[in-house]
């Protein structure tokens, strides 16, 4: 197993990420330049209604309350795994190294076995 300690250099990744993003942004930047060379009346933005499917009032109405609830749900769903799993696992991996994986397996496998044993099977499965 190679045991050389990596020495992360800042120059390479910065150069790579900045050059890649600049290259990707070249096309819209060029379009923006061309657009700003047009007369002001020609480059005015067009106001449009949001896309909706259906003609009823309910289909046209933006589900504002549901969207707010949905945002809160998604934020919770993404923050809780990060807080519960990722941060402690990063700390454990930094402290233990790859041996942390073995400890995690020893912790998770009994829980998994008990869960699989205790789950109620539906009649069809």
């Amino acid at each position: 197993m190679p045991a050389a300690t990596p020495s992360p250099s800042v120059v390479g990744p910065l150069l790579f990420v900045c050059a890649l993003l600049l290259g990707l942004a070249a096309v819209p930047s060029f379009a923006w330049l061309l657009r700003h060379a047009l007369p002001r009346a020609s480059r005015a933005r067009v106001d449009v209604e949001p896309v909706h499917f259906g003609v009823s009032e309910r289909a046209r109405r933006s589900p504002r309350h549901a969207v707010l609830l949905h945002r809160a749900l998604l934020t919770t769903a993404f923050l809780v795994p990060i807080a519960l799993v990722l941060v402690p696992s990063i700390v454990a991996l930094r402290a233990l190294g790859p041996r942390g994986l073995q400890s995690a397996i020893a912790l998770v496998l009994p829980v998994l076995l008990v869960t699989l044993h205790a789950r109620r099977r539906s009649p069809g499965s």
Binding site: V27, P28, A31, L34, R35, R45, V46, D47, V48, E49
Partner: peptide
Amino acid sequence: LLARMVRTRTRIVGL
């Protein structure tokens, strides 16, 4: 693609 980007840009009402 460049022509589409230059030609028209939209703005969603209330967004």
